[in-house]
């Protein structure tokens, strides 16, 4: 069974990179998202670095589409809330007692740009890396096997649980459960919906634990993996270089090199 994720398979150099290299890219995009001083620098990083990287992996459209729908609700909230309620001098227009200011709107949109770069950097990793390969790479660097087992198993089974939740909802509805009722009644509804889901799955847990034990799950030895990862000297130099760049960004931010 495949882990459920937004990974898109594509024959590209980006996909071939060691997952650690891509994780390093993402970490530095996250650092840059909060270290860069203004919207121009943020958008420039997104357009000049992130977009070409995604395009090289054939992931430009999925990345832009996902990033757009993720950032849009934030951008709307930020523009309205910061625009009206952040301090500013230049009034744009008034709505009742509140005035939208240019400075407020600007700070809201700068924050939206930070989220765009941060979420875009995260999406790049998720779209181009199979979760099991990322977990294997981390395991080779000392991540406990149990943690990687938990993450990968959860990714495999959660769609089945969503399915089961829908089945239970339908079953209870067919027994006459009213879901179009007042708020308090709907809250009370949750128990007959959640209890079968949770109880049914906990009973299964014991069986699965025994099945795993029968396959030497907790036996302490080095287990080989079905999948193999490529790594190279060039990639480890690249990782070090990107990390150094990230440290420089943080240094510049902390020393106030950039005007606020």
């Amino acid at each position: 069974m495949q882990a459920q994720s937004i990974y898109i398979d594509h024959p590209s150099a980006l996909h071939q990179l060691n997952p650690l290299t891509k994780l390093t890219f993402t970490l530095v995009f996250l650092v840059a998202a909060f270290a860069l001083p203004n919207a121009v620098a943020l958008i420039a990083t997104f357009v000049l670095i992130l977009v070409p990287l995604a395009a090289s992996g054939g992931l430009l459209l999925p990345l832009l589409r996902s990033a757009f729908w993720l950032v849009l609700p934030f951008a709307i909230s930020l523009a309205l809330i910061q625009g009206f309620f952040s301090p500013g001098q230049t009034a744009l227009f008034s709505l009742g007692p509140f005035t939208m200011t240019l400075e407020g709107l600007g700070s809201g949109l700068t924050f939206a740009a930070r989220l765009l770069l941060a979420l875009g950097g995260t999406l790049l990793l998720m779209l181009s890396t199979r979760p099991d390969k990322l977990m294997l790479a981390l395991r080779q660097r000392g991540l406990p096997e149990s943690l990687s087992y938990i993450v990968l198993t959860a990714l495999q089974i959660f769609p089945r649980f969503q399915e089961r939740a829908r089945t239970i909802l339908d079953a209870q509805k067919s027994r006459g459960l009213e879901t179009e009722v007042g708020l308090l009644r709907r809250l009370a509804l949750l128990v007959p919906l959640i209890a079968p889901l949770v109880l049914g799955s906990i009973v299964e847990v014991e069986e699965r634990a025994m099945a795993l034990e029968a396959r030497a799950f907790s036996y302490k030895t080095i287990k080989t993996s079905w999948i193999s990862l490529e790594d190279s000297r060039a990639q480890s130099i690249l990782r070090a270089a990107i990390l150094f760049f990230g440290v420089v960004l943080v240094y510049l931010r902390l020393t106030g090199f950039w005007p606020q």
């Binding site: 959860a154 089974i157 699965r208």
Partner: peptide, 8 residues
Amino acid sequence: VLIPVAIA
């Protein structure tokens, strides 16, 4: 085994 189920 319980933790992934709890996450789901």
